[in-house]
Design a protein around this nucleic acid. Sequence first.
DNA 1: TGCCAGGCCGGGT
DNA 2: ACCCGGCATGGC
Length: 220
Amino acid sequence: MKDIARFYELLFETFGDLNWWPAETVFEVMVGAILTQNTNWNNVEKAIKNLGEAGLLEPEAMFRADLAEIARHIKPSGYFNQKAIKLKRLVGWLESSVGGDLDKLKDRPTESLRKELLSIKGIGAETADDILLYALERPVFVIDAYTYRIAVRHGWVPPETTYDELASLFIDNLPEDVGLFKNYHAAIVEIGKTYCKKRNPLCENCPGKKLLENGRPYEV
DNA sequence: TGCCAGGCCGGGT
DNA sequence: ACCCGGCATGGC
């Protein structure tokens, strides 16, 4: 599946280094990963700004904050009641596992961190991998809705492919490079916003059809 | 104006 | 094992 490496070259020619994730701190990346679940980043930015102005963009402060206050600040990001609970669970985990000191996460192996993140209700595979890759610099590959659609529409995998299977496919066909994994996912999101929305399932201008010889449109 | 966004969970079949 | 509804705001 050398198309996966080739596809990145093509994306890189278009987008270059996108320098993701847009955030000031490691904790801000973690918060953004939860807030952006099924949500436009533009709305997430508003919520993060509110949290920052309230002094809640650090683990200890958020740990001590009221659930209702968190919910109020993150309202623009949607699902605010659910997400406030998720943030509380995240900082609860940080408090109990490293006492809110994110530097201490550096010593933990990636696999055990991933299991712990996935054990937090409200954090699924993509959110966990966002945190591992963009906050903690671990070599995991993030699969989002765009990645899935692109892979299926290109004919790289069948529609029933699972998250972990698809992530493994990317990892197995690329050099293990955190910077590359970060930028590949970033570029997929950029091109996905334009070409791989739900409403153009035939993907007339999808990069799979346009840029790769064996690109095949799929209903996804 | 409806549809969708950088998901995830729980309940029903 | 699937399939589906709920969660919710803001932008185009």
